[in-house]
Design a protein around this nucleic acid. Structure first.
Length: 420
DNA sequence: GGTAGCT
DNA sequence: AGCTACCAACGCTTG
DNA sequence: CAAGCG
């Protein structure tokens, strides 16, 4: 007979763990959350712990919306934004919303991710802004929402068309699965526009794109009006709207993950549910995060004067992207006899090479120069894009990207990119 | 999943 | 001691 | 104006 009433009540169905410097009580680890696939809570916690370092790149300092399924996906679910007053004091939060009366949960480290997972927070949704710039989004979204029964290959084709459409504006779109049949396209932007400005810009892009593909796409939410067409959902690009985070699990069978992909991986994507809670951590460990450097690709929003004209693109000034003309004047200004650096030069290689320079300028930093043979975009980079810094118009089909890596904090790296 | 308020 | 309620949000369209 | 939808 157990004498301790607490011990009796809990039937020892919990265990303590420590993640970093925080102790966390994990409860009901054998509870089945996904009945068909048999995924239990221990697997959810393990997944989120393993993916945490990568996941945190996309959710750190973002107010979260949790979708929780404490008794599994067959039972009731609910949103949660407000931090409960019984949460550990090391769970960070930020007052937001009307009258700032809600204390939005933010994940800042692996421990907070594990705490969320133990709460059966299967889905993590994020805003497009990062604390403390809650009125300045740093990416925009196209949510490609196919009509019932549309084959995934048709969704892929539209995503690729949208990709090709956006690149000439200087944007650098990224794609991920939604976890269902949809695809999400994220486009990083500089953190200097309010939501209204961003939305107007996205809307004008979407309207032009739909004009090019009126038979297959629509902006109309109305069910009748969009019969059989894929909805290009731009309406999430507003403050207080959210979208499922990269690497979030979805609350349906077979526990799929919203999986960031490289564009070429769409070429043979037939079933988005091959990416799920049981294999994504291993895939990322083996093959890497396909959105690596996401933030470094941010660009200004385009303006009306940035319209493509003929075969020439006018890129807006950017601290990350340089046009060949801008680079030419930069290179002319450099005098390598006055610096201790070796003069950059092309090296005879198979195409892949790298050089690291220790560069003690106004701030100590390291320059990493990567040279890689890459095929033109999808084998046929549009002529209109020949001044894009990624292809750089080099006759040898070689792209050079200069990365300047500055160690600012001793812990994290800031990476600036420019074509070179 | 954890708590509070009610019976 | 057991039961239940709670846990988001907003513009837009439709009835 | 409430309900439904994304």
């Amino acid at each position: 007979m157990l004498q301790n009433p607490d011990l009796h009540a809990m039937a020892v169905n919990f265990q303590m763990t420590q993640v970093g410097k925080h102790k966390i009580k994990l409860t009901n680890l054998d509870k089945v959350l996904f009945p068909e696939s048999g995924v239990i809570k221990a697997e959810l916690v393990a997944y989120y712990l393993n993916i945490a370092p990568t996941l945190l790149r996309y959710i750190r300092r973002r107010a979260l919306s949790l979708i929780r399924f404490p008794d599994g996906i067959q039972s009731h679910q609910f949103f949660q934004k407000d931090k409960p007053d019984w949460a550990p004091d090391w769970i960070e939060s930020v007052p937001l919303g009307k009258d700032e009366k809600k204390d939005y949960i933010m994940a800042t480290d692996e421990a907070s991710i594990v705490w969320l997972a133990n709460m059966a927070s299967i889905e993590l949704h994020i805003r497009q802004d990062r604390n403390p710039n809650h009125d300045r989004p740093d990416f925009f979204i196209f949510d490609l929402d196919p009509p019932e029964g549309q084959p995934i290959r048709e969704v892929v084709e539209i995503a690729q068309q949208l990709h090709e459409f956006l690149v000439p504006y200087g944007y650098h779109p990224f794609v991920k699965t939604s976890g269902g049949k949809g695809l999400h396209i994220f486009v990083p932007i500089e953190t200097k526009y309010d939501y209204d400005t961003m939305f107007a810009c996205v809307k004008s892009l979407a309207e032009e794109f739909i004009g090019l593909h009126p038979g297959s796409c629509t902006l109309k939410i109305n069910k009748e009006a969009r019969k059989g067409k894929l909805l290009v959902d731009i309406y999430r690009n507003r403050g207080s709207q959210t979208i499922v985070a990269p690497y979030s699990v979805r609350g349906r069978e077979p526990a799929p993950v919203s999986m960031p992909l490289a564009w070429h991986q769409l070429d043979d994507l037939d079933d988005p549910t091959i990416y799920h809670v049981r294999n994504v951590a291993d895939i990322v460990k083996r093959e890497g995060d396909q959105w690596e450097g996401f933030q470094s690709y941010s660009t200004p929003l385009h303006t009306d004067s940035d319209q493509r004209k003929g075969s020439t693109i006018v890129l807006p000034p950017s601290k990350f992207y340089k046009t060949p003309d801008q680079l030419k004047s930069y290179l002319e200004k450099r005098d390598f006899s006055k610096t201790p650096e070796p003069t950059p030069s092309l090296v005879e290689t198979d195409g892949d090479a790298f050089v690291v320079h220790r560069h003690h300028a106004s701030r100590l930093h390291y320059d990493l120069r990567l040279e890689k043979m890459v095929p033109y975009y999808r084998g046929q980079f549009p002529k209109a894009c020949h001044t894009n810094p990624v292809s750089n118009g080099l006759p040898s089909r070689q792209s050079l990207i200069r990365l300047s890596i500055c160690n600012l904090t001793g812990r994290s790296l800031r990476i600036n990119m420019a074509a070179a």
